[in-house]
Design a protein around this nucleic acid. Structure first.
Lengths: 224, 224
DNA sequence: ATTACTAGCCAACGAGTAT
DNA sequence: TATACTCGTTGGCTAGTAA
């Protein structure tokens, strides 16, 4: 059932050019002819690729009159950050990095999920950690959003999902990390869109051990 | 005359897989069938691409009996590091980094080249620096070779080449950097193979200012 | 077993053009 | 001006098979 992520070669090049041209803006007003020039293809082909990418959910378009405003969707960003992460791994660059953020209160959901037995067994086996039943929620600083996207795009450690009587629990992606020297792990739902709030687990109660309160700044260090 | 570097889409995917499978080894013994499985293409196509990449100088092959040992050439590495650098720039990741190395004596060539007027004019305009006539040579630590390849692959600041009566002087690629807070610039011949000795220029005589002698360790910091 | 030649096919392309 | 449809062509693919 798990579909193998195929590197979307067809759209990769033009997507890269769009991202480059966008710079720090969120949308880009560009004609298919300009894109054709930038990519070295024909206007017709650029137009066709744009249509296809829109259908595939890689980009969004707002057409106003004869012009189009293009933005890149989360799915499109995943392609770019995924490729970057893959190259980082292959070339062995940027193995250690860190993300800064602010402690905040979660909704208490973390505690519920983390405590499920099938997850616990895997946390123990794959992370060598029996987590304290609860997660530390950290809102990522805006400056480190890009770093988070980079980490998210990496393979990480797969914690498999499972089904209980009533419902299914999705797969989780984990990354070992540390806060002020305390070993912990960042966990994401395996399939999810980008969120700027991290959930951190550890074998101990991080808030107490590190004396953390809502609003405190923390630096989460990764060695991947 | 300057050929536009075309992103070699055709070979990129299989090259990535080869690099991944190689890991830290220098060569890889692999059959076209295995490569086909890893890339999701037919054995015949993998074989054909390998032949083409060999002809293009992207990989080297040693055929022993029925087996082949593949290695990636400098030109092949340029494709991978180039792609990584491009994505880094587009996504705005890894803007600051550093390279460590050891000071060593150059051959005195640097002094000769750097002092040429057309270079000096551009150093002043583009780097805002009238360099001391000579270069600091730094042998890069093995650990930082990958970081150097990454920087090399970036666009940098182009110092154009020129012709004098007797010969031509090639284009130079420069990167602003600093050593212990002193502004300087790393310069490469624009077209050259990988070398692990850096040439650094600065407006002052770095050896004296920083009290450097052969064998001393230095950290060169980049903000790109 | 392996590499790699040949033939045939089709997805993706450029050109022309409608809108 | 633009975007994007249709059509003819072809580069790059798979399959079969020789070496």
């Amino acid at each position: 059932m798990e579909k193998i992520e195929k590197f979307n070669e067809k759209y990769y090049h033009i997507l890269k050019v769009i991202a480059q041209k966008m710079g720090d803006e969120k949308t880009l007003r560009i004609t298919s002819g300009e894109l054709a020039l930038l990519t070295g293809m024909s206007q017709q082909n650029a137009s066709r690729l744009i249509l296809e990418m829109e259908n595939e959910g890689i980009i969004d378009r707002k057409i106003s009159g004869r012009h189009q405003n293009i933005s890149i969707t989360e799915s499109g960003l995943d392609i770019l950050y995924g490729e970057f992460a893959e190259l980082s791994q292959i070339l062995g660059i940027g193995k250690s990095t860190s993300i800064c953020g602010t402690v905040q209160s979660g909704l208490g959901e973390g505690r519920y999920y983390v405590a499920k037995k099938p997850y616990l067994i895997q946390f123990n086996e794959k992370l060598n950690m029996i987590p304290y039943p609860g997660t530390l929620n950290v809102k990522v600083d805006n400056n480190d959003e890009k770093t988070l996207r980079h980490i998210r795009a990496r393979k990480g450690i797969l914690i498999e999902g499972f089904s209980s009587d009533d419902r299914t629990y999705g797969a989780v992606k984990a990354f070992k990390c540390n806060i002020k020297g305390v070993e912990c792990a960042l966990i994401f739902p395996y399939r999810s869109i980008y969120r700027d709030v991290l959930e951190i687990i550890s074998h101990i109660y991080l808030r107490e051990k590190l004396n953390l309160e809502d609003g405190d700044s923390v630096e989460i260090k990764f060695d991947i």
